[in-house]
Design a protein around this nucleic acid. Structure first.
Lengths: 119, 119
DNA sequence: TTTTCATATGAGCATTTGTTCATACGTTCA
DNA sequence: TGAACGTATGAACAAATGCTCATATGAAAA
């Protein structure tokens, strides 16, 4: 059987059109993967809490840990993920490392999310 | 030891201020949980692909499955999650069930995500 | 009523994920 | 140099997640 063989939904559907239209608009696999990875980062309440801390100030790791009442290790692991996604950036100052938001998309995305759940 | 005892970061930090400021702005636990749950839904490329299909039209389940070349069961499971998050809505027409986007937040959030990764 | 088609759903399994624990790395100060 | 502090990281384990398979539900046609 060919890949796109259609076995179901004989009546109501417009496969040929739809598949072509969708494929024309669908981002490529890499972008879809990156998109999912990005939202996965927002999909954990510890990381969201970290972002809310960084909404207020540039903060060092142990202060984030103290503020959220979590271990330094747990916070550090999550900061690494946030940094890999370019949602936060860091700056070393002596023994401490200060983290801050990387750009405005973070606030916008969180704000849109809050908008959605307030309904 | 009390919950908020501070053991680290003696020099650079402004715990008292920070903790109070952050707590004033931090959403309550329920909202943080809901926020994370919402973004978790966006954090899977199958569900994102489904949303891109629904960007184009109101579509029945088997058409989504055909378009994305996945099983009806897999799509149905994911549609349930999308519906629970109120990102999509459904309408039965005879034997078929047609799904569509629930509101504009979906497009906005996806658009912001794409903005972010294009850098 | 009995098939047939479209969709929904529970169980099972493999994979992913977040935290903890131990420890390594990097910097400052004595 | 060595000790102390702040941070990073790998391994391990429990919990969550996405797909498959089998089957149930709902609606239309025979």
């Amino acid at each position: 059987m060919a890949i796109n063989d259609v076995e179901h939904c004989d009546q109501h559907c417009r496969h040929e059109d739809l598949i072509q239209i969708v494929n024309a608009q669908m981002p490529d696999e890499d972008e879809l993967y990156d998109l999912a990875e990005l939202f996965k980062v927002f999909g954990d309440s510890t990381r969201i809490r970290i972002l809310f801390v960084l909404f207020e100030a540039e903060v060092c790791v142990c202060d984030i840990a103290d503020t959220l009442n979590m271990t330094q290790s747990a916070i550090s692991h999550q900061l690494k993920i946030l940094k890999q996604s370019k949602l936060v950036k860091s700056r070393r100052e002596g023994k401490s490392v200060f983290y801050s938001l990387a750009d405005g998309h973070v606030r916008t995305i969180i704000a849109q999310g809050r908008d959605h759940i307030e309904e």
